[in-house]
Write a protein that binds this DNA or RNA. Structure first.
Length: 568
RNA sequence: GACUCAGUAGCUCAGCUGGUAGAGCACAUCCCUUUUAAGGAUGGGGUCCUGGGUUCGAACCCCAGCUGAGUCACCA
């Protein structure tokens, strides 16, 4: 990057860096810096025992600086918060040489630089707990100015709020917006709470493949990739269900996995292409047991985060106090639409959809139609935690048939705030039934449902060896985190939400611009056609198109039928 | 994918009816030894998202595009 592209402030900071080196200060020292406490520990402990804080060493990022002649105040932010420091010229420079204060601290250090200080804690005349600095060490020079967010009496000034910048430069967001960091700390507390609980129960945390030859366990469009050495397609996993159940077959009686899943579908406030699911499978249990287990998870997580089962979420207070109501899908639909779907045929269900104003298409089977009715008319009504239970068999190909109603399955979804939070079954372990259900999915697929499941022969083989009765459950961890931290968007609970890559404006020559404009009208386009349209000479054409490809603005591909040019 | 809104200094934002681009913070120089969204003085800093068009003249109006956000659709 040339100096011309740098802003004035960036140039000044690079110059400061240079001057620092000239003064014999290493702006990026290698040696370990021995910190002996943190901002939060000083704040928590000073009032109880001042003597414990007469020799403190802390390090962090300088977030503000108030210089008054021979003395100055600054704030240091470490991983637990901020604390003020007091810097006096004659104390950090006891001899004749005052350069460390006059030059380094006052002029060459900037907001954002990382420093370490040694000193003692005291209270200023204004009542602020402060570290009186005896020794100051430069630990890392920052070359870019940070947004300066200020706060007074709970009011925030000049907040760094632009969502695009916050998501693209999450590191900056984390530095200047403490509430953002807090959300991610809470996310970790949620994981730790759940892990601890599962481990208390004696279940094993395991890992299963992300690259799979057959994407199974859910109805979703997968990402596809290619393995060069094997020369075969591989899919990114959409769920881990089928692998975890293989482990139950293998003799584990309780397994769980926190797993990144990938779905090649739309993105919005609640969907990111990669997201995290926790799936757990426990042998000799059924979905009724799993409901109580799920209640315990919710209660423990809420209490770990908030000290209570009541959690604010938007305009609602969600109470995760067990037990949650159990409502069958049939009851739910009857309650919110007035229609009883019991024993209805596909045609009758389609008729109900028409009357309710729900669009249908011929690829939808019975299960999908019922799912549509529920999703359209019922789902949004369940704000407080509610188990919706006993789903139609068509929409649950991996679930055991209901012990009393063979047209239903032993399945529940936990609804919170009108959205699905968890999904669980008494797992289907009859291999012959399972094979038939897969066959049914296949015929759905042939009807045009591109989410219907593939047949996983190896999974069927595993079931044929015998799987104990098992209950399994999955929780969307991102959604759980959103609910538990009152975050309105999934981007607020993912450090690095998926975004389009940043595009830099590229300088184009006149001829390149002509070709580029034509490409904006039609792309991809056949090479000779584009060349004719551009009306450029052979030489100019060649130069223009080579320029565009080298600047990664366009790409030339051999399609077999000829050369085709695509805009990037 | 559709619609709506937005893009101006490092950050947050003004910018009237189209007429030489502004403020606060930050930055630079200076004053000040317990300040605290420090204060005071002076100064520097701009591809007004990009490309066209209208116009004597465009940050502003029109068209196209890019990026983001929101709503909806799709999607467990």
């Amino acid at each position: 990057m040339s100096h011309q592209e740098l802003s004035e402030q960036e140039i000044i900071r690079r110059n400061s860096l240079q001057k620092m080196r000239e003064l014999g200060i290493d702006p990026y020292p290698a040696a370990q810096y021995h910190v002996n406490t943190t901002s939060a520990k000083i704040k928590a402990g000073f009032a109880k025992n001042e003597n414990n804080f007469q020799d403190v060493v802390i390090a962090g990022r300088m977030m503000s600086q108030r210089i008054m002649g021979k003395a100055a105040f600054a704030e240091i932010q470490d991983h637990e918060g901020r604390i003020q420091i007091y810097v006096n010229r004659d104390e950090i420079c006891p001899g004749e040489d005052k350069a460390l204060y006059n030059e380094i601290f006052k002029k060459l250090l900037d907001i954002g630089d990382i420093i370490g200080v040694k000193g003692f804690a005291f209270i200023t005349q204004m009542g602020e707990l402060t570290v009186h600095v005896k020794e100051l060490t430069v630990l890392s020079k920052s070359l870019r100015p940070l947004p300066i967010v200020k706060e007074k009496d709970g009011q925030t000034f000049d907040a760094f709020t632009d969502p695009e910048q916050r998501y693209r430069q999450r590191y900056v967001d984390l530095i200047v917006n403490p509430q953002v960091k807090d959300t991610f700390m809470k996310r970790t507390v949620i994981y730790n709470t759940m892990r601890q609980m599962f481990n208390e129960y004696g279940y094993h945390e395991v890992e299963t493949p992300i690259l799979q030859p057959i994407p199974g366990g859910a109805a979703a469009r997968p990402f596809i990739t290619h393995h060069n050495a094997l020369n075969m397609p591989l899919y990114m996993r959409i769920a881990n269900e089928l692998y975890l159940k293989r482990l139950i077959v293998g003799g584990f009686e309780g397994v769980y996995e926190f797993s990144k899943d990938f779905r090649n579908e739309g993105m919005d406030r609640t969907h990111n292409p990669e997201f995290t699911v926790m799936e757990i499978y426990v042998a000799y249990k059924d979905y009724k047991w799993m409901m109580e287990f799920t209640e315990e998870i919710c209660e423990r997580v809420a209490v770990a985060l908030h000290g209570t089962t009541k959690v604010q979420l938007g305009d609602h207070v969600i109470d995760y106090k067990a037990p949650f109501p159990r409502v069958t899908m049939t009851e739910a639909i009857k309650e919110h639409t007035g229609y009883d779907i019991t024993g209805k045929s596909e045609a009758e269900l389609r008729d109900i959809c028409d009357k309710l104003g729900i669009e249908t298409d011929p690829s939808m089977g019975k299960g999908k139609l019922i799912d549509e009715i529920f999703g359209e008319k019922c789902e949004g009504n369940y704000i407080q935690p509610t188990f919706i239970i006993d789903y139609p068999v068509e929409m649950s190909p991996l679930t055991k048939k209901h012990r009393e109603h063979p047209e239903l399955t032993e399945r529940f979804e936990l609804m919170v705030n009108g959205k699905e939070l968890a999904n669980a079954y008494s797992e289907l372990n009859d291999p012959i039934d399972q094979r038939e259900r897969f066959q049914d999915q296949l015929s759905l697929s042939e009807k045009g449902d591109d989410e219907a499941m593939f047949i996983d022969q190896d999974f069927l083989r595993a079931l044929e060896y015998g799987m104990p009765p098992t209950s399994g459950m999955g929780i969307g961890m991102d959604r759980l985190t959103m609910f538990m931290t009152n975050s309105p968007s999934i981007q607020d609970v993912l450090f690095f939400p998926q975004m389009k890559p940043e595009k830099k404006a590229v300088e184009l020559t006149e001829d390149e611009k002509i070709v580029h404009n034509l490409l904006q009208e039609t792309s991809p386009v056949e090479l000779n056609e584009l060349k004719t349209k551009s009306e450029l000479s052979n030489k100019k054409w060649d130069k223009a198109i080579k320029g565009l490809t080298s600047k990664k603005v366009a790409k030339v591909e051999n399609t077999g039928a000829g050369l085709s040019i695509t805009i990037l």
